[in-house]
C-alpha cells in the first residue's frame, strides 16, 4: 500500500516537474496539474494509511487515532483541491490571453523562424 502510493506520488511529481520545465504553456499547465495531484495525494497520506478502518467513531468508544483515519488531512486536501482548481482555471485564461496577444504559446521564448 505504502509502496504503491509512494511510487504514484513520485511518478506524478516527476512527470509534473519535467513538464513544468518544458517551453510551451500547455505543457506547463499540465505539469502544474500533475504536480498538484501529487501534492494532494501526499497531503492525504499524512493522515496515515489504513485499509478497512472505520470512517467515523463507533458508538460508546473514546476517540483514538489507532482506530480510525485522521480526518484533518482529508479536510485539508479538499481545500487544497478547490483552491488549486480555481487558480489553475485562472492560469488557463491567462494562457489563452497570452496566446492571443503574442501569437505564440511559448512561455518566454519565441517561435523558430520557418
Amino acid at each position: 500500500m505504502e509502496l504503491v502510493l509512494s511510487l504514484g506520488i513520485g511518478i506524478l511529481a516527476g512527470s509534473g516537474v519535467w513538464l513544468l520545465l518544458r517551453p510551451r504553456t500547455f505543457q506547463v499547465i499540465i505539469g502544474l496539474a500533475l504536480l498538484s495531484y501529487a501534492v494532494n495525494l501526499f497531503i492525504f497520506s499524512t493522515g496515515g494509511l489504513r485499509t478497512g478502518a472505520a470512517a467515523i467513531l463507533q458508538a460508546g468508544e473514546a476517540g483514538t487515532l489507532a482506530r480510525y483515519a485522521d480526518p484533518l488531512p482529508q479536510a485539508l486536501v479538499l481545500t487544497a483541491i478547490v483552491i488549486g482548481f480555481a487558480t489553475t482555471a485562472l492560469l488557463l485564461v491567462v494562457l489563452l490571453a497570452t496566446r492571443g496577444l503574442t501569437r505564440t504559446d511559448h512561455v518566454d521564448g519565441r517561435e523558430r523562424e520557418p
Partner: peptide, 16 residues
C-alpha cells in the same frame, strides 16, 4: 499578460 503568466506559474509552484 506575459509577465502575469510567469508570476502566476511561479506562485502556483510556491503554493504547492
Amino acid at each position: 499578460v506575459r509577465a502575469g503568466l510567469h508570476y502566476i506559474v511561479v506562485n502556483l509552484v510556491a503554493s504547492l
